[in-house]
């Protein structure tokens, strides 16, 4: 059964998506295979680090006016 989507995906958007995905899949596959193997050899994490949490030094504490 075909998907029953109800939003308009946009024809230009669909074409671009297919093009981008084809290009992006090359480095993506590389990172998951050869790149991942290389990082593991060097004892590094395969994934990029998650975005850092806000550090306590970022905090400020202004009061009410």
């Amino acid at each position: 059964m075909p998907p029953i989507g109800y939003i308009d995906p946009g024809s230009g958007s669909l074409l671009l998506q297919a093009l981008l995905a084809a290009i992006l899949s090359l480095p993506f596959v590389f990172r998951r295979t050869i790149g991942g193997f290389w990082h593991r050899l060097r004892g590094e994490r395969v994934d990029e680090p998650a975005p850092s949490k806000v550090r306590s030094s970022d905090r400020s504490n202004p009061g009410h006016s």
């Binding site: 075909p2 995906p9 024809s11 230009g12 669909l14 074409l15 998506q17 297919a18 093009l19 981008l20 995905a21 084809a22 992006l24 899949s25 480095p27 993506f28 596959v29 990029e48 975005p51």
Partner: peptide
């Protein structure tokens, strides 16, 4: 008219994951 995009067979499971990974990187 552009070709009916619904019928394109341009994607694959890996390409979907690659697109998603790229979106995540863009947001992060």
């Amino acid at each position: 008219e552009p070709s009916a995009p619904r019928r394109t067979r341009a994607m694959s499971a890996t390409r979907h994951l690659a697109l998603l990974d790229s979106l995540r990187r863009s947001v992060e």
